[in-house]
């Protein structure tokens, strides 16, 4: 599903590479944590997978597509197969929960009829049934992140990327979000999560890839934060 082959990424003006000759493979349906201290290069992996940045060297293959050689006009279509959630939720403040999720469908050309059918379903799935017409500021942090997860998942992506999704949430809420991601993972969606929340990693007991200074220092099938 995801292949990184000898990937090096050096940002302009940076003294050392963010990722240094990293090779890793992730199978379909896996749940993978990337852990490591700030600045270790974890977030760069998310950016590479989204084709927000291109690797300096090496090859990134996502869903059988070589992202490295992907033409820029094909990027939007490629991103439709990937869902993404972030620490800061990135919801549109002037739209309700329903509208936020429907927006993601409408801007890729789905009709309002499709949205009316699919959006309530996915909001129900993330546990926001009955709160469809609340605005983000009327929802708690955990609920906002659920809306973001619903938006990422509504298009049934093959891969869900999560960049510190619990970074702004208290421990209890974090665990609820993790249960949600776990449920999504059980539908067959590959989940890649970047985090430095040791509690969560230890509870989930999933594959853990630890990065330090741009290199993989550990790759454990049922790992803990350590």
């Amino acid at each position: 599903m995801i292949q990184l082959e000898n990937v090096t990424k050096t940002y302009p003006k940076a003294s050392r590479p963010s990722l240094d000759n990293v090779s890793v493979g992730i199978e379909k349906g896996e749940f993978v944590f990337f852990i490591g201290p700030s600045g270790s290069g974890k977030s760069t992996i998310i950016k590479l997978l989204l084709h927000e940045v291109a690797p300096t060297r090496g090859k990134v293959v996502v869903n059988q597509k070589d992202v490295t050689t992907l033409r820029s006009w094909k990027v939007p279509h490629f991103r439709r197969s990937i869902g993404c959630v972030f620490q800061d939720f990135r919801l549109l403040p002037n739209r309700t929960a329903y509208e936020n999720v429907a927006f993601a469908l409408e801007v890729i050309g789905k009709t309002k009829a499709v949205a009316r059918r699919v959006v309530p379903e996915v909001l129900e799935l993330v546990g926001l049934g009955g709160k469809e017409h609340r605005y983000p500021h009327e929802l708690s942090g955990g609920e906002q992140q659920r809306v973001a997860v619903a938006r990422a998942f509504v298009n049934r992506p093959l891969i869900l990327l999560a960049d510190e999704p619990t970074g702004n949430l208290d421990p209890d809420t974090s665990i609820e979000i993790m249960r949600l991601l776990d449920r999504i993972n059980r539908t067959g969606t590959t989940v890649v999560m970047v985090t430095h929340d040791s509690n969560i990693v230890n509870q989930m007991r999933r594959r853990v890839i630890e990065i330090e200074s741009g290199r993989i220092v550990r790759d454990q099938a049922r790992g803990v934060y350590g």
Partner: peptide
């Protein structure tokens, strides 16, 4: 900018943005 960021994220085509 927020709308545009979300549109890019979910893969709206360039012409649509």
């Amino acid at each position: 900018r927020r709308e545009v960021a979300v549109m890019k994220l979910v893969g709206a085509s360039n012409w649509f943005i």
